[in-house]
């Protein structure tokens, strides 16, 4: 479990997340991509905290901030999906050409 190996795993998760976030049409699948992306970021953060930062507690603190970001992303994402479906009957990105209103 070298630092490099974990970083490569994190990069792979991030790459899959980028693919998912860019390629999926369905809102929920798109959010899954974003979450994989944050997942990779958290993994990279934790390995650098554990191996290169000398165990400074601020590193873990940053992890807590990442998780907050993730929670905010999910909550607002689900709320927006609900709101957009009510107003536009849209469940995929192609149905939202016009963002105004």
């Amino acid at each position: 479990m070298t630092t490099e190996a974990v970083l490569v795993v994190a990069a792979a998760l991030f790459g899959i997340g980028v693919y998912g976030a860019l390629s999926q049409q369905s809102f929920v699948m798109l959010m899954m991509g974003i979450e994989l992306l944050i997942n990779g970021a958290i993994l990279a953060l934790v390995v650098l905290w554990a191996r290169a930062a000398g165990g400074s507690p601020q590193g873990q603190m940053l992890g807590v901030v990442f998780m907050t970001v993730m929670a905010v992303e999910m909550a607002l994402g689900f709320a927006l999906i609900t709101g957009v479906y009510r107003v536009r009957r849209a469940d995929i990105t192609e149905k939202l050409r016009r963002l105004k209103g």
Partner: peptide, 16 residues
């Protein structure tokens, strides 16, 4: 999207 994902992976893995 696949190209973007692979580029992101290769770049980040190279950094790692």
């Amino acid at each position: 999207a696949a190209v973007a994902g692979i580029v992101a992976f290769v770049a980040l893995a190279a950094v790692g």
